[in-house]
Design a protein around this nucleic acid. Structure first.
Lengths: 192, 192
DNA sequence: AATAATGTAGACAGACTTGTCTGGATTCCG
DNA sequence: CGGAATCCAGACAAGTCTGTCTACATTATT
């Protein structure tokens, strides 16, 4: 109760998060996770019935922390267009902090072609949350609903395209190009 | 000499190509490749010194076959704008044929966070070839070189974004949305 | 005080991994 | 004909993988 009170479960999840992202899911063994987390194997299997369950927890964790950190980053930005644009900046910062390893969710489905239902759900959940995030903002920025929807789709495509190209080049430049394109689109829209 | 004359090396490469893409690189063992190809293990290691070398050959093969099939698909299309647009159609067809497994190159780097130099080179080579492909076409379609360059970047981002989202949803819709955005961009350009 | 929840340590099963090696067969080419 | 290139069959090494299990210790709650 005095300090942080990091539970064993939390410790496992943090270690798994680091290793899954940095080394890859298939290249990270259960034994390595328990060694680096400093817990017993039975403890891991007590909290997570299988490696796949641990993976699902990892994906949900990533989804939540990414969005809450984004909200913090945007806390003083009110204008919807600016919120969209600054989200691209945040994405670049976040990717750099993670050594340009790319999107955790995309990586997982790239590693597991025959993914299970739970993993499918977790990945699609994140993508839908991101899609809705952009859609809400374009609807605020643009009265025409149909135009807002198509604009949001384009922005989301540029967002994912920028992310994956940053992974390839290990460089934030593609996301900056994507941001430029988005700025252009949002201005176009205003001028019309 | 009578029929196709598929060499052993070719047989290995074809089997590896199918398995790497459908199952993933790390989940495909050397033993499975030789079993399904019907060759001896020593034959595989005779032609490919290591699994990584086989991977590099696989990436180059994918790169070449994708581009030559694209050229065939576009053989009757002359207008540069139409060539760009039809490339998105071709991408969707190609992804569907490969069960929406996504881009082979992106998948490989997602599976191997600490990839070697040869693999890095192969992936970047493909990306640069695609980038140049779009750049050549935008330069033909648009006199202003600077505008053409930025247009090509945006198109390329939409291309990769559409590809990765198709992988997530196992559906061609995102690439169709990307195509729509590109059509819009190319028309904008014409109107200005 | 007793029971349930949570933890440690580590052996074990059964299967898989990449790569090497032995040993011999076939085929091509000069 | 002779040697080089190519191929097959499969044992083997040394390690990895996930998940189960036994046996015991600590903590919390009722």
């Amino acid at each position: 109760m005095e300090t942080q009170e990091i539970t064993v479960r939390e410790h496992i999840l943090q270690t798994a998060t680091r290793l899954f992202h940095d080394q890859g899911y298939n290249l990270t063994g259960i034994n390595q996770i328990i060694d680096e987390a400093g817990v017993a194997k039975a403890s891991l299997y007590y909290h997570f019935p299988s490696k796949e369950d641990l993976c699902v927890a990892y994906l949900h964790r990533r989804n939540n922390t990414w969005f809450s950190a984004l909200e913090t980053y945007l806390k003083d930005v009110d204008d919807p267009k600016q919120r969209i644009i600054k989200t691209f900046d945040y994405r670049a910062i976040h990717l750099k902090k993670n050594h340009f390893g790319g999107c955790s969710h995309i990586k997982i489905i790239s590693e597991m072609p025959q993914r299970g239902e739970k993993i499918d759900q977790a990945v699609i959940l994140q993508k839908e949350k991101q899609r809705k995030f952009f859609l809400d903002l374009t609807e605020q920025a643009e009265g025409n609903r149909k135009k807002a929807a198509s604009l949001a789709e384009t922005i989301f495509l540029l967002f994912d395209g920028g992310t994956v190209q940053c992974q390839v080049y290990r460089d934030p430049a593609p996301l900056q190009a994507a941001k430029k394109a988005v700025v252009s689109l949002l201005n176009e829209d205003g001028k019309k």
